[in-house]
Each structure stands twice: as C-alpha cells, then as structure tokens.
Design a protein around this nucleic acid. Structure first.
Lengths: 206, 206
DNA sequence: GTGCTTTCGCTACGAGTCGTAGCGTAATGG
DNA sequence: CCATTACGCTACGACTCGTAGCGAAAGCAC
C-alpha cells in the first residue's frame, strides 16, 4: 500500500479500521460471490464504507483482491522440526491449509490470470505474495545446509536456480493439486511429495 | 459440446464454421483484452456472428473460454524419444510452449478460479483439459515400465496415487514457473525439473 | 417444387455495474 | 480558528449483460 504523500502530516488521517474492514469484506465477498461476480459496490456495503472510499485507496478490483489475499499468507512461518523433510512438510501443510480456504482459491488464481496482461499487477503479486513464500524456501535451505543435510552452495547463480526450481515445484504442486485436480493436499499426499522432492534433490545435487 | 437434441435430423444445421470462428475469436480476444475485459459482444463481432448465436451455444463466458482454451491442448502428444527422461522432457516442453501463449495464460487460470465456485465448470475443465493431460502421464509411465525403467505396478490404488502425484508435480511446476514466477520454462529449466523428478521417483519407488 | 423445422442475423430492451464528480461534513495539525 | 485531507452520500453517463421478438435462410422429408 503506497502513500501518495509520504510526508503528509496534515489533514484527517485515513481510517486504519476501514482498511481492515474492507479487506475482510473483500475476502468474505470472494467466498460468497467468487471473483467475477464480486463488485466493489458490494464490498463497500459489507465493509460499511462508501464506495468512493474504495476508489480513493485502490485503483480497481485487481489491486484490492491482491491485498486482501496477500494478508492470508502472513501466517506462513518456517517451523523448526529438526529435519529438512519435517520442515518442508510443515510449510507445505500450512500452505495447503491456506489454499483450502475458498477466499484464497477464488482470489489467487484470478489475480494471477489478470496479471498476465498487467505488468504492474505482476510486480504487486511478486512483492506481496511470492517473495514472502520464497523467503521460506531460502531459509529452509540454509538451515538444511547448516545441518549438513544439503551440500553447501558452491556457485551463487547455480544456487539461485535451485531455489527457484524448488519453489516452483513445491508451490506449483500444491496449487495444482488443490485447485486443478481439486483434491485435498492432506498429510499423506504431502508426505509423498516431500519424499520424491528430497530424494530427487539429494540425487541431483551429486 | 452437448447436442441438445441428440437425434435431431431436421431443420437447419448449426454452422460448424461458426464454431471454429467463435473459438478462434475468443482466443484472440483473450490476447487483446484479457479475461475480465473480454465481452461476448466483442467476441461476436470478431467472429462475424450475432451475439445471440453465442448464447444459443454456450451458457456464458466461463463455458466459452473453457472450450476455446481446451482446443489448445489438442496438440499434446507423447513423443517416443527412447528414454523416460527424454519423453518427459518432450511433453513438458510442449506443455510449456502452450502456456507461453498469452491466450492460454489469460484464459486457463481465470476459468480455474471461477471453477472454485462452480461444480459444473470444474467437471467441464476436468473432462476437457485435465484428463487429456493425465492420459499422457499414464501412457508415459506404462511405456517406461515396459522398458524396465520403472518397476511394474504392484498395487493398483498405490499406482493411481503415484500417477496423480506425478501429474500435479509436472503440470503444477510448469504452470507456477510460467504464470506466477513469470519466467520461461526453457530447456535448461525443464532439464533440471526432469532430473529431480526422475531421481526422486526412482529413489522413492524402492 | 412444397412444407416443416431449426438456426441465423438483427434490433431493442430493462437491469445491473462501472468509475467519476460534486458537495457538505468530520477529523486532524499548525 | 484555519488549512488540509478523508469521509459519506448522491447523481450521472457509459457500458455490459442476457433475453425476447422478428423475418430470412438453410437444411430434410415428401
């Protein structure tokens, strides 16, 4: 969320309560109506604010939904379960739990689809959602290297490519399982995913 | 595409040329406008047909776009390159080439998002798009077992779960790489994905 | 050819949404 | 008290939606 006037000290401040109410109302509207039938007028009514207030803070539906969905991923953390396999399973299960919520399912893919034709929206998604997740991959990898479960990185560029690959494989698999195949990413499935991934990484790193 | 009257022989037949023109116009509209700004009126003008003709054949925007996008996946085939690794790389590269097209990028994720709140649309996507892809996974797996690259299936249910996992990992990784991370699934990346996947499967099958 | 049936193109329509402008009021800081 | 900004509310033109009604066109059966 960008301040239009970074050093604006005068005037009536924007209501912080309105922000949280609007984002919560947006998520609930996603649950009730889905992406295409969600209207900003409806969100305004649900949040108890005027429609014009929405347009003063967000450029349109896309930007609003990105912010509303991004908040869902704030709860992602990297648990320390003692082993790389257990850590991965923990994160993936958290990720799956978020994607199980209807507000995430309806909103996330819709904004990704819109972002294919909107560079600014792509950047917003990257900064608000993707980077936050990728940080967990990097942290988990670093911790595994400290434990000796993965060999230390020799080449920086090569390491970056590995992180990108792992990230796309983990997040992509869970998203595809949940949204396209439409089946739950439960513990059994996550366990299988983790096993294939770790075996492949260990063998491929040689 | 369902015939309303399976045994209707009388009357003026529906123009097959109109069907192809409409679906092609829909894909072009996806390129030019994206999902949210695509209107059926615009598609009708591009296709050179009346708007009412569209509503006589499709229930709405969702159904039309699913059919338009599904045609893109018709070209998917399983090449015989001699080894499982080469076969996988071939299919994944085909899949990546399709997802590189803007009409696929904009359309596919949008209908997936809409499908989260529409059971009929989910079924339509499964039948028109997902099953077609999954068949390639099954065929490739069978061929690899005949070659002796993978152990023959002992348990049917266990085998089905493995196919599902592989499918979600392959398709999900490519989709996530292409649409979310917004980077090309080029040969180098596909090679890395294949290596991790095969190593993991071989090790995990023991 | 003559009917019969279905599709087609076209026009028109009410309903709903969009994003903006204008205005008076509320809430801050100087 | 005054300048400044945010807010709620109303109204507005422009656009899209999905449907109805009409006459014309294109097939098939006879």
């Amino acid at each position: 969320m960008q301040r239009r006037h970074p050093a604006s000290r005068t005037g009536r401040p924007r209501s912080a309560a309105a922000d949280t109410a609007i984002l919560a109302a947006t998520r609930q509207a996603l649950v009730d109506l889905g992406w295409s039938k969600l209207t900003l007028s409806d969100v305004a009514v649900r949040a108890g604010v005027a429609k014009t207030t929405l347009y003063r803070r967000w450029a349109g539906k896309n930007e609003l939904v990105v912010d509303a969905v991004a908040e869902l991923f704030d709860e992602l953390t990297l648990p320390d379960r003692g082993s790389l396999a257990a850590d991965i399973e923990g994160v993936v299960l958290q990720f799956a739990a978020i994607l199980a919520r209807p507000e995430a399912r309806s909103g996330l893919m819709a904004v990704v689809a819109e972002a294919t034709r909107d560079e600014a929206l792509r950047e917003r998604i990257r900064a608000s959602i993707v980077d936050r997740q990728k940080r967990l991959v990097i942290a988990g990898r670093t911790r595994a290297q400290e434990r000796g479960e993965l060999p230390p990185e020799s080449d920086a560029e090569r390491s970056a490519r590995a992180v990108d690959l792992i990230f796309d494989m983990v997040a992509g698999s869970v998203v595809h399982r949940t949204l396209v195949s439409n089946q739950p990413a439960d513990e059994e499935w996550v366990h299988g995913l983790t096993r294939v991934l770790l075996s492949g990484l260990a063998a491929s790193a040689r």
